[in-house]
Design a protein around this nucleic acid. Structure first.
Length: 215
DNA sequence: CATGGGATTGACT
DNA sequence: GTCAATCCCATGC
């Protein structure tokens, strides 16, 4: 608006899109490190505060049955979206991981709203910020992610996955079993930002915790 | 071609 | 705490 824009006037530089090489690694590493990264669709974006890992070697993963019309994308190039309909109602967003040929993905389970919060409120029909993206079906509604985004390249968009948000470079994590599954339910493959009020479910008391996203 | 099972959510007892 | 809504798709006849 004025003649002397300061480099800091617009806030920190937005993170760059994550590249395919980031996702072409063990799915557990990617699931841990995605906490703190940003999902963006047009004007709406949020910081990932909860993920789960899925791998073809265990039966909770859709890729466990092999490559079918539904699971084909899971075996394809890393960094693409796998979006499927859950319980006939909700679209759930995953990122394909591991090298091409290996069926694996990270489920994005919850976000902390970052931009476009009013648009999220309209889409969700709710006001409380903690209710907008605190679940895998909620965040897709808030970001308008649908089945048409299946197989989208998350580096180029329109739905994009960006690097760590400012201040989220190494969030403390809580680790525990995945939610809502009956098979391989014992594996501790769920990763949450510790103490976040935007996770899909309150953290059960006495559950194992870990301090750092990696190493 | 018929059937059944979900990586959920919101409303209700 | 319980439960129904609703649709994609894997499986089996």
């Amino acid at each position: 608006m004025t003649a002397h824009p300061s480099p800091r006037a617009a806030g920190p530089a937005p993170p760059a899109p994550l590249e395919a090489a980031f996702f072409a690694r063990p799915v557990l590493d990617v699931a841990r490190e995605l906490v703190g990264c940003v999902v963006e669709h047009g004007p709406a974006a949020g910081v990932i505060v909860e993920t789960e890992a899925y791998h073809e070697s265990e039966p909770a993963c859709h890729a466990h049955v092999g490559s079918t019309a539904r699971t084909h994308v899971l075996f394809g190039p890393p960094g693409r979206a796998y979006v499927y309909r859950s319980y006939g109602i909700h679209a759930l967003l995953n990122v394909v991981c591991e090298p091409e040929g290996v069926g694996a993905a990270v489920l994005i389970r919850a976000l902390e709203p970052l931009t476009g919060v009013e648009l999220m409120r309209e889409r969700r029909g709710l006001q409380r910020e903690e209710d907008l993206c605190s679940g895998p079906g909620k965040l897709t509604q808030a970001l308008d992610v649908e089945l048409r985004h299946n197989q989208v390249d998350l580096e180029t968009g329109p739905v994009r996955l960006l690097g760590a948000a400012p201040g989220w470079e190494a969030p403390r994590l809580a680790v525990g079993p995945r939610i809502g599954i009956t098979k391989a339910a014992e594996l501790p493959w769920r990763f949450c930002a510790r103490d976040s009020r935007h996770v899909s479910r309150p953290w059960p008391p006495g559950m194992a915790r870990a301090g750092s996203p990696s190493r």
